[in-house]
Design a protein around this nucleic acid. Structure first.
Lengths: 151, 151
DNA sequence: GCTTGACATGAACCTCGGTTGAGGTATGAG
DNA sequence: CTCATACCTCAACCGAGGTTCATGTCAAGC
């Protein structure tokens, strides 16, 4: 007789909070934002699938590299709730974040160099000064998860 | 007979706004935060010294490299209102910001690399994962304008 | 079955860097 | 002097990313 199939244990919000180190208030907030999902018991309490732990890990890791929740949510949209993340997903997400981070680093380096140039020329005046009018504002919009969308 | 000394023209908030491209509401906000100062007319209207234009330029340029207003305010504290910024000031401020930016870039690179590592090991689990528990939070506090303070 | 701790909701509050609007006053050109 | 602008203050609001609190319900151990 085979062992009875282990029922994959669901997590309460307290357990998820404990195991992830993320306050329950934040987990409820993520749920309102659509980043994670939960089943509700008959008594209206949240129960999380085990894989939610991974989602939360991904959220926090992404936040730690400076991603806003809105962008993280976009990427998590490609990862259905309740299935463990595929290797494919990790690879693409990583590539996506790397691209994003590289862009930000590049921008900061450009700004730093401009700042130093401006010291050299003593300007820091409007109209002429590249630092005061960076012109990078257009490039600001729409990086998005290209690597996830274009395999 | 010598020409009458040109009275250094003061700027109204509208003029400062126009010439700096910064909304008047933001200029009032900066004043509340103590980043810039103004003289008041008998009728309680603001009049700005010409050098305020430079201060505002500095504020915007600093913001463009990601400095929070509080830190910018700290550095501007070394630049008395009404005197044009010295070369010394620019040089130190630049060095200060460069240091700050380099630190941020370094941190982002570290994070990016960790992210990629974590993809490699497939972890992204709590407790073990360096990304999820970066341990960089302590280093977060107190960079401050060292270069301005220690000549 | 009772009690206690965990969970639910909603509203209020926080920081940061401002914007918007209402209601009132100054300034300057004609 | 008048009248259009420009300016003043104060209060409320935005969005991001949450926290805190009050009040009420659920689940589980004894």
């Amino acid at each position: 007789m085979p062992e009875p199939a282990k029922i994959a244990k669901e997590l309460t919000i307290g357990e998820l909070s404990e195991r992830s180190g993320v306050p329950a208030s934040a987990l409820r907030f993520y749920e309102r934002q659509g980043l994670i999902a939960s089943r509700r018991t008959t008594g209206n309490q949240r129960r999380y699938h085990r894989t939610t732990l991974r989602r939360v890990a991904f959220i926090r890791a992404s936040q730690s590299v400076g991603m806003p929740l809105s962008v993280i949510g976009g990427v998590l949209g490609f990862l259905p709730e309740g299935v463990p993340p595929t290797r494919e997903f990790w690879v693409r997400a990583s590539a996506c974040w790397s691209e994003e981070i590289d862009a930000r680093i590049e921008k900061m380096e450009r700004m730093r160099d401009r700042f130093t140039e401006c010291i050299g020329c003593g300007c820091l005046s409007f109209e002429q000064c590249a630092l005061v009018n960076p012109g990078d504002t257009l490039a600001e919009r729409g990086p998005g998860p290209r690597r996830l969308l274009e395999p």
